[in-house]
Each structure stands twice: as C-alpha cells, then as structure tokens.
Nucleic acid binder design. Structure first.
Length: 541
RNA sequence: GCGGCUGUAGUCCAGCCUGGUAGGAUCUGAGCUUCCCAAGCUCGAGACCCGGGUUCAAAUCCCGGCAGCCGCACCA
C-alpha cells in the first residue's frame, strides 16, 4: 500500500486499543488466567503489569472503548519524556541540529503535495455475500500486474467490471468502490470551514518551515531540523498495544544537504561502530547468518548504504537503542528492495526489533532526494532552491535524508527488553531500565517512621528536588516492600535513612540490580547519583 | 469487517452447568509492631460490562449491544 511503505516513511503508528481499561486489563487477565506464567506471551504479561503500575492507561477509560489510543500514566510519561530528551541530546544537541514544533493540523494543499492525500486513501470493496473486505487496487494488480497507483475511482470501478473480478474467497459479487482515508479530517474556521487534516507525520511541518529557517540560520547546507510530536493515522483495526495506534509520537529529523557533497561532519565519531544490516524481502526469514555486521565506514565504502549521512544516523541509532536498554542482538536494519521503495528513493533502511509480537519496525531511514521540497515548491509556487556558495554558484533543491523514529514502539521494545521476571535472588518482577531513562533516579526511605527518620529523609528529598533530581519518597510498608516497589518501576537507586544517619550524616545507597549497598555522606548524594547515572552503574561492583 | 473465545473489587482468581446473603488472595488506607529486602496483628475501603427478557427471585438462564483477546482480512 502506498502508505508508509510507499513513501518510505516509518509507520510509527501504533495503536493500542485500550479501549476501556477494563478491556485491556481484563483481557489480558482472562487470557492470562488460564495460562501458566511460563506460556503466557510476554506482551500479555507486560500489558497487565504496565496498566497495574500506571505506566500506560487505556484512553477514555470511564466512557469505554476508544480503540487505538493509549494514555501514558505518571510513570510511563516520565520514562517516555526521558527517552525523548535522550533523543534530543543524542541526535540534536550533540551535532548542533535544530528543533522545531510545528502544527498538528494541516490544510489539504501540503498533503496533496506530499502525496498523503492520495496515498493514504484506499479504494475498498466489500463482498456482498461473505462480507469480506478487499483493497480494490490490489485485486486488479493481482490479476493484471498493472500498477493502479493514482488511478481515479471511476478507473478502478471500470477496471473491476471489465475484468469481471469477483470475491476471491467466495466468488460473490463485489460492492461499489468505497474509500477509506487513513488521515483524520477536521475543519478550520466556521462550521463549514476549510477541510483540514491531523498530520499523518511530523515531517511535512519541517519541509514547510525549511525556507525561512534556512535563511534565518546562515543560508548554509547542510542543515538539519528535527521534531518530536504526535501524528495521527486512522487505522482500520488497531491491534497489539502500542504497536499500531491511531495517535502516536514520532521523533523525526530532516537532514538537508547538497547531493554533490553528501558529508557528515562528525562521521569519524561513528566510523568504527558496527551496524547490523540484512537484505531480505519483507516476508522472508531474517536468518541470523544473513545479517552483515559492517562498520559505518564499511557500510559506505561497500555501497550498502548510499552515503555517510545515512550511515551516521544508523550507527547512532544502534548506539541510542543500546543506551536505552535494547541489546544489539535484538535488532537489525533491513535494506528495502527497490520495488519496496518509492521511485524517488535512493535507499531505505528500516530498523527491526525482535519482540514477543515478532519483529517490529521502529525506525525508518529514507534517502528521499529532493522529492519533498520539489513537490512543495511546485504546489506552493515558491522557489525552494538554495544557492551553493562554493564558487560554483549552483542553485539546487537540497536532498534529504530522513531518520524517522516511532517513540511508542521503541518504548514498548524497551519494556520488553528490560523486563526481568522474579527469581530466587529477587522475588519480584522488575525493569532493568538504564538510569538515564528511569522514571525516578532514586527513592528515599526512612527505615522507620519514628525518631526523626521521616523528617531527615524528607529533608534529603527536598534538597535533591531543589537540585532538579527526580526522586521519590515513601515511608509506608516494610523497607523490603519499598525496595520491591522501586525495582518494579525500574528505579536504579534507593537511599535509606537509619539510626546511623542521625549520628553521622550518612545514608545507605542500594543498587537495584544486585540489591547491595554502600554508605555515603549526605553531602555527596547529589554528586554520586549524577556520577553513577552517567556511568549507568546499577550494581555495587 | 468475518469467525472463535472471553467479560466478577486496582490486580489475579472462585462462584455460573444445578437461579436464593458474591468468597479468597493480593493491592490499598489507618493504627500497633519492626534497625535493611514483598514479615505479623487489628480495623477500614473496594466488584458481578451495558440494556432488555424469563422468574417470587438473575452474577448465574435467554436475546441484543459494547469491549477485549486470538485467527483471517487490512495495516507497519
């Protein structure tokens, strides 16, 4: 389908139906209830856990179901924001790239230029007998091998009649051609105002803002602009939790450059980083032996990846995912075959991550050439060419490499990758989240409520918070129970105030992964926490 | 959208076949106790997806709706 695939963008939609929390939670339960822990799929167990721990909530729960939407709860929102901020640090700030925040609502014109108005609209026919639904263009293409891309509705209807196509399942007669548009519509202005859409991706805002930002920031290429934000796609049947939602979050960058100079300034920083790449068809098995582990420079010199820019982003994505707790072995890029990419593409690489749902595509990297800017130039009648001031005085439309990442899908992959079942050593389920994305950096507990320990602990919490550290306080339940609750949401450090604290101004600092403790001075807490978090230290040793 | 399965406290389950006070665990709140890994005791709060039907009486039986899961289709 022309959708994402065709335009080479990440389908980051994810939808989870959380229709009714009831629903989500219950379902999981009911399926879980009859299954033993060992044979319950991880995503079922996880969905139960994340709803129980306020990581995710079904949207609009009290009114019942609203499929394809999930809310992030208090814990989930903290983790998600940490991931997004880590992305900003890693992909924007580190290289001096720019960030914008563009409108969620777009008029029709730019989406006609981008191709979404036609590509996101599917011609649909139903069988009048068995009620099965089909893509009308797919039925024709199957029969004739003739591409129906861009065909009008009457063309499609005529072609169906001409070829005497009937229902492939039961041979029944087909209904008239109907249309389903993946984009949500709305109106701008008064009741019958202008038709508008909720953006199906964040990228178009960047293209439309390109010209002014280019002029305002030195009129030089390369220029990279990124954006984090929600996008919307009206999926027919959202499934699989966060994997296919109707409203989802994307982190996208458009890297604008001169095609005669496809360089990346900091490429040397990643030249020796390994990038796992596989070249197989969409439905073929990803056999481990077929994955090539090339360094970024090998990937470019071998011609596997079209240029340094793409290799740079791909190498950084692998590092970023590992930084967030997803192991190298669980992911690879798939190089899309020529017939899977749009005509203007010079290369598409999807990151696929192994999960309990199977492989999930979480990143789409696309070399989109000058397609988007050229198309917007034509449709808006604006000259979007820029002058290359290297003596050649060329005027060109910049080329674009677009790394597009789905936040929700990545979020789910992180949960799956860092989930740890109960063991003899730790008798509860927990998340091995890297400190940089943990919801709280630390929890502070008084060993008991009496003798001034509560007050001493609260003072420490207040001090840390005034220094902008995310810490949580708890005095209810036994100390062991509080450690368990901290582990359950992935908090890496716990500090306990005991009688010794009152004597010598030290606290115990417990590390999540081995449960071992060291004693540190109150004055040093802030510095130590920052230091350990930076190192990713989660055990005493 | 089609088919199968399912819907009981925040969570996990029992009760349904054979209609008659909805039970347990966990979680949670208060108190007591407790000097470090889900301890104990006391007290408290909390549920039959919605609507209709049958019946003296419905969580239970029947019909419809809604939702979820799985499969198909569709979709990244």
């Amino acid at each position: 389908m022309p959708n994402e695939r065709q335009d080479g963008k990440l389908g980051a939609s994810a939808a989870t139906d959380a229709h009714g929390i009831h629903g989500a939670a219950r379902n999981f339960q009911s399926s879980a209830s009859h299954a033993t822990t060992s044979n319950m799929p991880l995503h079922e167990k996880l969905m139960e856990i994340v709803i129980k721990r306020s990581i995710l909530l079904p949207s609009c729960e009290i009114y019942g179901p609203q499929g394809g939407f999930f809310d992030y709860g208090p814990i989930g929102a903290l983790i998600k924001h940490n991931v997004e901020n880590a992305w900003r640090e890693h992909f924007l700030l580190e290289d001096g790239f720019l960030e914008i925040e563009s409108s969620l609502i777009l008029p029709q014109a730019p989406l006609i230029a981008s191709g979404h108005a036609s590509n996101f609209t599917d011609p649909i026919v139903n069988c009048t007998k068995c009620k099965h639904r089909f893509r009308a263009d797919a039925l024709i293409e199957e029969k004739t091998n003739h591409k129906m891309e861009g065909a009008s509705s009457s063309d499609i209807a005529n072609k169906l009649a001409e070829l005497k196509i009937s229902c492939p399942d039961c041979k029944g007669a087909l209904s008239d051609v109907g249309y389903f548009n993946m984009m949500f519509t709305t109106n701008v202005g008064p009741v019958d105002g202008n038709l508008a859409y909720l953006r199906p991706e964040t990228a178009q805002g960047i293209f439309m803002d390109f010209q002014r930002i280019f002029r305002n920031s030195g009129s030089k290429l390369p220029l990279a602009i990124g954006q984090v934000g929600h996008s919307f796609r009206n999926e027919i049947s959202p499934r699989q939790g966060l994997v296919r939602m109707r409203e989802f979050t994307q982190m996208e960058i458009e890297y604008f450059f001169d095609p005669e100079n496809p360089k990346m300034q900091n490429f040397a920083n990643v030249a020796d980083e390994k990038i796992p790449i596989i070249e197989v068809g969409k439905d073929e098995h990803r056999h481990k032996d077929k994955i090539a582990h090339l360094t970024a420079s090998e990937a470019v010199s071998s011609g596997t990846v079209p240029n340094e820019i793409m290799a740079y982003f791909m190498a950084k994505q692998i590092k970023f995912y590992q930084m967030c707790g997803i192991p190298y072995e669980k992911m690879h890029f798939r190089k899309l075959a020529a017939n899977e990419t749009p005509h203007y593409s010079k290369g598409n690489f999807d990151l696929e991550v192994q999960t309990s749902y199977g492989l999930i595509e979480t990143i789409g990297n696309a070399y989109r050439t000058d397609f988007d800017l050229s198309s917007h130039a034509t449709h808006s009648k604006q000259d979007l060419a820029v002058l290359i001031d290297d003596g050649s005085k060329r005027r060109i439309i910049p080329h674009v490499v677009e790394p597009s990442m789905g936040v929700d899908r990545m979020f789910w992959c992180i949960l799956e990758a860092t989930y740890r079942p109960a063991t003899k050593e730790k008798e509860w389920e927990w998340f091995d989240l890297p400190p940089v994305i943990a919801p709280y950096l630390a929890c502070v507990f008084p060993l008991m409520k009496k003798d001034g320990m509560s007050e001493a602990a609260q003072q420490i919490v207040a001090d840390l918070r005034s220094n902008h550290l995310a810490v949580q306080y708890s005095e209810t339940g036994s100390i062991g129970k509080r450690y368990a609750r901290a582990d359950e949401i992935g908090v890496p450090y716990c500090m306990t105030i005991d009688y010794t604290t009152l004597e010598d101004k030290t606290v115990t600092l417990r590390f999540r992964n081995d449960g071992k403790q060291v004693r540190i001075k109150i004055d040093e807490i802030e510095q130590k926490l920052r230091e350990y978090a930076k190192e990713g230290k989660v055990t005493v040793e």
